[in-house]
Design a protein around this nucleic acid. Structure first.
Lengths: 251, 251
DNA sequence: GTCCGGCGTTGCAGCATGTGCAACCGTCAT
DNA sequence: ATGACGGTTGCACATGCTGCAACGCCGGAC
């Protein structure tokens, strides 16, 4: 729409391929040297490009700083919330969103079940890290070394007979979760409650959050809850797209 | 220099603080809504900004992709080379540049000593990972869990009586290196050869490479070599600045 | 040492292009 | 229904971007 800006922005992907000098830039843009110079100067003033010793241009530090700041200020909860509400409207059960932070996994959002029977959980509360579906999803994404170290540090309380008993079992479970891209907790925390969850991923594919649907046996059986898996996964993927900024946007 | 581009680029840091709608952007830029709209549209076409469901604007995925591609295509060796040559001209000894790659530490550049006595090493050759100064620098920067796992996997060949004997000693050495920001190898690989090295860091502070100066006892004593430490560190810092794109650039 | 070629830089005249305005539209809340 | 709000469109004006040509600097060739 704006020619000048259009040209200036076209320089960036070009420089991403590697350093280039003024003439190369001008040529690939199809403009006069002086035009390219002014564009590059403006980009330079904003720190978007950097001038090497040999005068060639490269992408600048500001670009990285911006990208980093943007990620930091991205609020998964804000973005995810409408999707969680939608998910709740479709299935009626309790919906959770959780993140991994400082050796803990925390609930950061919750949409209450529309059934009279509700489950106990609170936003900001750490989850049962060895059994919760969301915890498995978040920890399964850690690099192998960190996963092992963490697994060995944890306690494995036997909330129920189906709780994860020890580090070996936990690591095996995490490997499975990592592989399949979803997770469950079938009565591992409270005998009568089941969950299914799926990961929310950022631009780089790393898991930044996890969402889950939970319901007590008295409302739906585990088998029936598992039928919701595709819906949960689609929701998580929609959040991922919006979070990563890839969704098709309207005109 | 270019008003339009200048305004367009000013939008980015503004959006990095968090999502904003058209009017907010227009207001903070001090321009008419329609002007801001056209700028945002252009940015949008290039994927630099993303439009959320609620119509507000955010920084877009392209920005992250660009930043990532740029770091991938950054060639440390190319950037470092002139600095290594300069370092060699100042001290006369063999200068090495190494990176950490796939469980190995590799020499990727070398400037030969100007003294007749030279040391054996080859570009592309893996370094003695448990003793070399550059290896210590690169491994010291790994996250604690990975460092431990790696240290336990390694063999500790006794090249000399001063070689690192085992994982515990190695981890202790890495902790010291991490703390002090430089490393040595005093006869740990070959009895008569000493090295001092310093890390090259990227924008985010992570160590991306390490450079070192090596010299045999017959040319300079270890004490004398250590006197070069400030010079080596300054060189590594200069490379870091250039690599990270922070150096003061000429008009 | 001198010349030459390449590349970045500057000043300028002309007009393409970006600008602000005002009117229009869709949505939401009252 | 009605009004307010925010995004969108078309347009006339002049701003500020464009390409040209001339200049200066550096580095290599001979």
């Amino acid at each position: 729409m704006s020619q000048t800006v259009d040209r200036a922005l076209s320089i960036l992907p070009l420089l991403a391929e590697g350093p280039a000098n003024l003439e190369q830039v001008a040529q690939r843009l199809g403009v006069h040297k002086s035009t390219a110079l002014r564009l590059l100067r403006t980009l330079h003033e904003h720190g978007m490009v950097y001038r090497q010793r040999d005068q060639r241009y490269r992408l600048g530090a500001r670009l990285f700083a911006l990208a980093q700041q943007a990620v930091e200020n991205l609020d998964v909860r804000e973005i995810a919330h409408p999707y969680l509400v939608e998910l709740n409207e479709k299935c009626g059960h309790t919906v959770h969103l959780a993140v991994h932070e400082e050796h803990e996994v925390l609930y950061i959002d919750k949409v209450e079940s529309r059934y009279p029977v509700r489950m106990y959980s609170r936003i900001g509360k750490p989850v049962a890290i060895t059994v919760a579906a969301v915890a498995k999803l978040l920890l399964a994404d850690l690099p192998e070394a960190e996963r092992r170290t963490l697994a060995e540090k944890l306690d494995y309380p036997l909330y129920t007979p189906r709780s994860t008993p020890n580090a070996a079992a936990f690591l095996k479970e995490l490997a499975a979760v990592r592989e399949q891209g979803w997770a469950t907790d079938l009565g591992g925390h409270e005998e009568s409650i089941n969950c299914v969850g799926a990961p929310v991923r950022g631009t780089d594919g790393r898991v930044v959050a996890a969402c889950s649907v939970s319901a007590p046996n008295v409302v739906v059986t585990a088998d029936e809850l598992l039928k919701l898996l595709p819906l949960v996964r689609r929701t998580a993927e929609a959040i991922s797209r919006e979070y990563a900024g890839r969704a098709p946007s309207s005109p």
